Computed example of a mutant assay.
Amino acid sequence: MQRRTKIAVLGAVLLLVTGATGSAAAYGTDGHPRQEAAALTGTAKLYRAAGDDITFTFDAHLAAKDHDNPLDATGTFRWSHYAANGEGGWAKARVDCLVTGGKVAVVSGVITDTDLDGVKGHRVGISVHDTAGTDRLGYSWAATENMGPKDLPKCISSAPFERVKQGTGDFRVVPWQPDF
């Protein structure tokens, strides 16, 4: 090869490698473009020996443009809890904060719709641990009566102490990486 051709080929290879490396930073570990700074999505049922039907569903997102402010998170989450005798209820909340780290997420929101008495307008928080085995979940009302205090601070919950029923957890946590 002539010197000029070698330089042109080497330059083209360098441009390709540089372009691939630079664009990799905009992609997540799954190879898809990173459109958001943090996320919690998925559905799971909690395990209860008594046979209660307890389901949690999340669709919470922090846009890439809002990556420095978890209070700009959007979306909803929903849960229901029905005892074996059919008694129970459900609630839906509008997300007002989302913080994730590794495979753990804490999301909070204000209850916007429910069939439970006296809890509409209350803020609640839920934590999730997205594991390779059995996912785990916790909630702010674990140590309080009903849904807890109406003035609960944003992004507050208990540790994820509940076990998700085998085969039902499909939580997906996108870890937050703020610019500090």
Score class of each variant (00 low, 15 high):
Phe56Val: 10
Ala143Thr: 14
Asp53Thr: 06
Ala63Leu: 07
Val164Phe: 03
Trp90Leu: 09
Ser140Phe: 13
Leu40Thr: 03
Gly31Cys: 07
Val106Gln: 08
Leu14Asp: 01
Glu36Asn: 07
Pro178Arg: 05
Arg78Thr: 14
Arg78His: 10
Tyr139Gly: 03
Gly75Lys: 04
Leu16Met: 06
Gly22Ala: 04
Glu145Val: 11
Ala132Pro: 12
Asp115Lys: 05
Asp66Cys: 04
Asp52Cys: 07
Phe58Gly: 00
Val9Ala: 15
Trp176Glu: 05
Lys154Leu: 00
Ala64Tyr: 07
Gly11Asn: 14
Met147Gln: 05
Val174Cys: 07
Pro175Ile: 04
Gly42His: 04
Ala142Thr: 12
Arg48Pro: 03
Gly28Ile: 10
Gly51Met: 11
Val13Arg: 05
Arg34Asp: 13
Met147Leu: 05
Val164Ser: 05
Arg94Glu: 15
Lys150Trp: 01
Asp96Ala: 13
Pro178Gly: 03
Thr134Cys: 02
Gly51Gln: 09
Ser80Val: 06
Gly42Cys: 03
Val164Ile: 07
Ala64Ser: 05
Asp59Gly: 03
Thr144Glu: 03
His122Tyr: 08
Ser108Val: 15
Ser23Ala: 00
Ser158Val: 07
Lys154Cys: 01
Val174His: 02
Ser127Lys: 13
Gly89Tyr: 09
Trp141Asp: 15
Val107Tyr: 15
Asp179Pro: 06
Tyr27Met: 06
His32Arg: 09
His129Thr: 15
Lys150Arg: 08
Trp90Thr: 09
Ser108Lys: 15
Asp117Gly: 12
Thr100Met: 00
Gly121His: 10
Arg172Ala: 05
Ala50Thr: 14
Ala63Ser: 09
Ala73Phe: 02
Ser80Ala: 12
Thr114Asp: 08
Ala91Lys: 12
Pro153Trp: 00
His32Tyr: 14
Ser23Gln: 00
Val9Ile: 15
His129Lys: 14
Asp115Gly: 15
Thr57Ser: 12
His32Lys: 12
Val124Arg: 13
Ala63Phe: 01
Gly101His: 09
Arg163Ile: 00
Phe161Thr: 09
Arg94Cys: 08
Ala105Gly: 06
Gly88Tyr: 13
Thr100Ile: 01
Thr131His: 11
Gly42Pro: 00
Leu137Pro: 15
Asp66Ser: 13
Gln35Cys: 10
Gly138Phe: 14
Gly167His: 12
Gly19Pro: 01
Arg4Phe: 13
Gly28Pro: 09
Ile111Trp: 09
Phe161Gly: 11
Gln177Ile: 04
Ala159Trp: 08
Val104Leu: 09
Gly22Phe: 03
Pro178Glu: 05
Asp59Val: 06
Pro160Asp: 10
Val174Arg: 02
Asp30His: 13
Lys150Asn: 06
Thr134Trp: 00
Asp30Glu: 11
His32Val: 11
Pro178Met: 09
Asp68Gln: 10
Ala64Phe: 06
Thr41Gly: 01
Arg94Ile: 15
Lys103Glu: 04
Arg163Lys: 05
His81Val: 03
Ala26Glu: 02
Ser140Ala: 12
His81Leu: 07
Phe161Asp: 14
Ser158Ala: 11
Ala91Trp: 13
Trp79Ile: 06
Ala44Met: 00
Ser23Thr: 01
Cys155Ile: 00
Tyr27His: 14
Asp66Gly: 06
Val95Phe: 07
Thr76Met: 02
